[in-house]
């Protein structure tokens, strides 16, 4: 066995997993605060990245474009809360889930309607070239993405643990009705959490967009996040990171050592379904995910 190659595949997988985690974080935030599985998170990633790149292409300064896009995502979050979620308070969760499916198509269509359906290049100034770490090649861009994800998780942890809004968010996540009874405005909290998810979507969109181009396919990144969520738990920020690392590493190792002619040769292209199979197996053993909250209901 070529251990150097194995390590490269493993590290490459871990770093790819961080990119999945970035998308998964947006799902976790909204699920944590409202119990809604936001199917539209992939659309939000696309909307944010397309808005940003379209502004930059129209001559808006990079940082100003970032601020404007963030403002747009906040407005979008507030509008979603006012127009879609508020009228559905106290409805069954499946209704809210269905609403976010509708929202997905609306956001995707809106993004292409406002801007365009073309492919846009996005250069963040971070070269995607390998650097030697010992005998292993690691992409500079992947290291940058990992550092970004780390900072984001730290910032979210501080936000949740140390700020008033963060504590309110946690209270809402624990029990909507109890939180409301102590005077926490549920609607404001939902609007804030959708805005934060919009920000996370922007970061994920920029990193993914820089690697693959800003195009409709960014919406597919959500598919990469689903097994991460099942594995890490829908309510845990650290779970999203750990889940991403496990999924990223295992899918790459499976592709190389099970799928390809180098390995067992059962057929290449297995990395699309392998993470889902892994997540399904995990569901059987630990349905709430690695870090998810155990749900106990008294009957």
């Amino acid at each position: 066995m070529d251990w150097q190659f194995f390590l490269e595949v493993l590290i490459g997988g871990l770093l790819a997993g961080v990119m999945y985690s970035l998308v998964a974080l947006g799902f976790v935030l909204i699920y944590k605060a409202s119990g809604v599985f936001n199917f539209a998170q992939g659309g939000m990633v696309f909307f944010a990245a397309l808005t940003f790149v379209s502004l930059v292409e129209r001559g808006v300064n990079f940082w100003l474009a970032m601020v404007i896009t963030l403002a747009v995502m906040v407005v979008l979050g507030v509008l979603i809360e006012r127009i879609v979620l508020r009228p559905l308070v106290n409805q069954p969760q499946i209704t809210l889930f269905m609403a976010t499916i509708g929202l997905t198509f609306l956001i995707e269509g809106l993004a292409q309607g406002i801007w365009d359906a073309q492919v846009h290049g996005l250069d963040l100034g971070i070269p995607d070239v390998p650097v030697k770490v010992g005998a292993i090649n690691i992409s500079q861009f992947d290291l940058f993405a990992s550092a970004t994800a780390g900072i984001l998780v730290l910032a979210l942890a501080v936000f949740f643990q140390k700020t008033r809004i963060g504590r309110a968010l946690r209270a809402v996540a624990d029990d909507h009705q109890a939180a409301m009874s102590v005077g926490i405005p549920l609607n404001h909290i939902w609007a804030i959490v959708w805005a934060v998810a919009g920000f996370v979507g922007l970061v994920a969109g920029l990193l993914w967009g820089s690697r693959t181009g800003v195009q409709f396919a960014l919406t597919f990144t959500a598919l990469k996040a689903l097994p991460v969520l099942i594995l890490g738990g829908f309510t845990s920020v650290p779970g999203a990171i750990v889940g991403g690392l496990i999924i990223g590493a295992s899918e790459k190792l499976a592709e190389v050592y099970i799928g390809s002619s180098i390995g067992l040769n059962i057929g290449t292209g297995i990395e699309n379904w392998f993470p889902y199979m892994l997540a399904l197996l995990f569901l059987l053993i630990r349905p709430e995910g690695l870090f998810g909250e155990k749900r106990i209901e008294r009957v």
């Binding site: 396919a217 597919f220 290449t268 699309n272 379904w273």
Partner: peptide, 22 residues
């Protein structure tokens, strides 16, 4: 000739290209 598949949509190809390098 070695045939290597990239699963749709193809926005992640790390493992395929590492195999190619091998």
């Amino acid at each position: 000739v070695t045939h290597i598949e990239v699963a749709h949509p193809g926005n992640e190809q790390q493992s395929q290209w590492l195999q190619i390098r091998q």
